[in-house]
Design a protein around this nucleic acid. Structure first.
Ligand SMILES: [Mn+2]
Ligand SMILES: [Mn+2]
Ligand SMILES: [Zn+2]
Ligand SMILES: [Zn+2]
Lengths: 137, 137
DNA sequence: GTGTTAAATGATAATGATTACGATCTAGGA
DNA sequence: TCCTAGATCGTAATCATTATCATTTAACAC
């Protein structure tokens, strides 16, 4: 996923094309494969839009996540955002706790787990590996 | 882990035996294998200690987690606590989103993942499966 | 291009979880 | 019993998230 495609998806969902959304998507493009917090995006956003409402950044990030453009995780009780992966296969991520950079993990144990939990209805799951990426350690 | 053993561990770490801590551990005993929020524990706690400080419950839960008596997770941005499992084997949990009840998952993919991530330093990982337990669905 | 309108933004405040702090109380040892 | 470090209480600060409403603007019809 990238900002150009994201603007199309926004339009498909009936959302307007605003300067603010374009800027936000550009920022997300610059953090490719990296989880970024609302606060950091708002700070970078504010350089172009001084006095921008925090809520505008916050609300748009949640909108983008809602329609599948972004994916999210929570680190230290703070929500983080990044473009949704393009690959069609189900996978998970290694997340660098220093820079937020992610690496794909093409291995998911949830199918095997389901077999070992008879009577349980599995709705979703979370598998994340944390550490330092090659550049950070 | 249970309240009796927990009181011993507290003493081993130089913490005092207080009525409040005893009550808190009793409450945790009553929620065996179930994740409970600070708020819920504080409400139950307040029945015996009207006007109890929220901070007392909160601080003690974090103390107990620090010294390995409790384990924690975060659901909807709210921290949840339960007694640490007695089993010595590394494992993960299915968590019922209706009642908090957990079931052990004796399967961890992190070793295999490490092999597929050369150059990455792996510090920790999270694997949780969510859904409805047999009693709730 | 002009006007219309629903959506988006800005400004600000409310909420809820977490954390901090000083005064008071108390467990546990001398 | 007395002393004191640690624990609790009462209260407030902090931080992320969410809500509200007046103002602005993108998209569309004319
Ligand atoms: Mn990916
Ligand atoms: Mn367990
Ligand atoms: Zn998976
Ligand atoms: Zn594991």
């Amino acid at each position: 996923m990238n900002s150009t495609r994201a603007l199309e998806v926004l339009k498909e969902h009936g959302y307007k094309h605003t300067k603010q959304r374009e800027k936000l998507l550009t920022l997300l493009d610059q953090h490719d494969d990296i989880y970024v917090s609302v606060k950091q995006l708002w700070e970078e956003f504010s350089e172009d839009f001084p006095g921008a409402s925090y809520d505008t950044v916050y609300r748009n990030l949640y909108t983008l996540a809602d329609i599948g453009i972004l994916e999210t995780t929570s680190l230290d009780g703070e929500k983080q955002f990044r473009f949704h992966c393009d690959t069609s296969d189900h996978h998970h991520h290694f997340i660098c706790t220093a820079c937020g950079k992610t690496s794909a993990i093409h291995l998911c144990p949830v199918e095997d787990v389901a077999l070992s939990l008879p009577g349980h209805q599995i709705d979703n799951h979370k598998f994340e590996v944390y550490g330092k990426c090659p550049a950070c350690h």
